[in-house]
């Protein structure tokens, strides 16, 4: 991967930052990269949520597990994404699975923390009242605690989704980075500005769309917070 640094000569190349002709001529490649990006993000969020929300609940219910769960997900979060892919790739290959596993590990901490914070914020008197009404165990969790923790869980999901969209690009080293692949190949093929910038803009736009969609879904899921927010 040591390619000649012809950069200094090429930096002066006169490509414009953006051209419609690039977009038109490469619509297929852009579409494929975008689809891969969306797929990776969606799958990551799905697996991360399925794993992290129960982990957060476990960390909340079993006090002795709180510290180990937070510590483990903290360590996974600290390991740089490229290193995470490097540690996984020799075993899982240059595949989408490697990227997915790495991204899920990364999103874990954010969602676990959101879930834990949300559950801890449920007022004790609400829990008391529910107990008085005969709620307990699983029913208390699903009917009272989780719904009340929902805003915080959703905040975690939103942050995780936006970070994931940005992080997918690093998957480019494995050849599975969605729009990141276009950014990296654009850089390596003659520093092709229109390709790098178009992919970047699409990537940031996707992150914003995810954020807005999740915020909107959150409002649908927690209709009772409407009055409080206004």
């Amino acid at each position: 991967m040591s390619f000649p640094v012809a950069g200094h000569a090429l930096a002066a190349n006169s490509d414009p930052w953006f051209t419609w002709s690039y977009v038109r001529n490469n619509a297929d490649a852009l579409g494929a990269a975008f689809t891969e990006h969306v797929t990776l993000t969606a799958l990551t969020m799905l697996f991360a949520a399925l794993l992290a929300v129960p982990l957060g609940v476990l960390a909340y219910k079993a006090r002795w597990l709180t510290a180990p769960i937070l510590a483990l997900s903290g360590v996974l979060y600290t390991v740089p994404s490229l290193a995470l892919f490097a540690l996984l790739a020799p075993f899982l290959g240059l595949t989408m699975t490697t990227v997915l596993v790495g991204l899920v590990m990364y999103a874990l901490l954010i969602i676990v923390r959101g879930t834990l914070t949300g559950l801890r914020q449920v007022p004790e008197e609400v829990r008391d009242a529910a107990r008085g009404m005969g709620y307990g165990g699983m029913r208390m969790l699903t009917r009272i605690e989780l719904p009340l923790a929902m805003p915080s869980i959703l905040t975690g999901l939103r942050i995780a989704a936006v970070s994931t969209v940005a992080l997918v690009t690093v998957g480019a080293v494995l050849g599975k980075g969605g729009l990141g692949g276009l950014i990296l190949s654009g850089f390596r093929n003659n520093l092709y500005k229109p390709q790098i910038l178009t992919a970047t803009v699409l990537c940031v736009a996707l992150a914003l769309v995810c954020d807005v969609l999740l915020a909107w879904a959150g409002r649908l899921l927690t209709p009772w917070t409407k009055g409080a927010r206004a």
Partner: peptide, 22 residues
């Protein structure tokens, strides 16, 4: 919030193409 949405890789690829150089 905004910085979270910007891919590091994109910024690292874009800045060398500006006046800053490599």
């Amino acid at each position: 919030n905004v910085s979270r949405a910007i891919p590091t890789l994109a910024l690292l690829s874009l800045l060398p193409l500006t006046a800053l150089g490599f």
